[in-house]
């Protein structure tokens, strides 16, 4: 009687363990799906921001990892899908940093160009000032002849 009871408990425990683990797998899969959707949105945003195309290759790689991850999930390979998603996450961090670096570099280029332009403007103005000073002296001299 005691042996039978133990076997029943064992069976119940196993059912519980199997139930818990299958629920955990199912929740991981749904979490990964949500992540895939979120990462795709982020990917789109970054692709739009990457006007210089500096991160184009990496963005493509991230897109591939997301596709692979989706496929693995469909095949029930949740762990492998998780690894691909991790790659995609780190890949997006990288592309974000690349895009930002490219934007800041672009602004720096613009300001350096503006600096050169202002220098040019000042040079032009100084030339104009010289000419005006000469004209002023000339006019003053001419006016004096009428006084």
């Amino acid at each position: 009687m005691e042996g039978t009871q133990r076997r029943v408990w064992m069976a119940l425990a196993m059912i519980f363990v199997i139930g818990v683990s299958s629920t955990a797998i199912a929740s991981a899969a749904s979490r990964y799906k949500e992540q895939i959707t979120a990462f795709r949105g982020e990917l789109k945003t970054q692709a739009e921001a990457d006007t210089g195309g500096l991160a184009a290759d990496d963005l493509l790689q991230v897109a591939n990892w997301l596709d692979e991850s989706e496929k693995l999930l469909a095949e029930g390979k949740t762990d492998e899908a998780g690894y691909r998603l991790k790659r995609a996450e780190y890949g997006l961090d990288l592309t974000r940093a690349l895009v930002a670096a490219s934007q800041i570099a672009g602004k720096a280029d613009e300001q350096e160009k503006a600096y050169a332009e202002v220098q040019g403007q000042i040079g032009k103005l100084n030339k104009e000032i010289e000419q005006l000073q000469a004209r002023k002296a000339e006019l003053q001299k001419e006016i004096n002849t009428y006084r």
């Binding site: 940093a97 690349l98 670096a101 800041i104 570099a105 602004k107 720096a108």
Partner: peptide, 8 residues
């Protein structure tokens, strides 16, 4: 890339 941001 962040180092590049910093330099830029």
């Amino acid at each position: 890339a962040i180092a590049k941001q910093f330099q830029a």
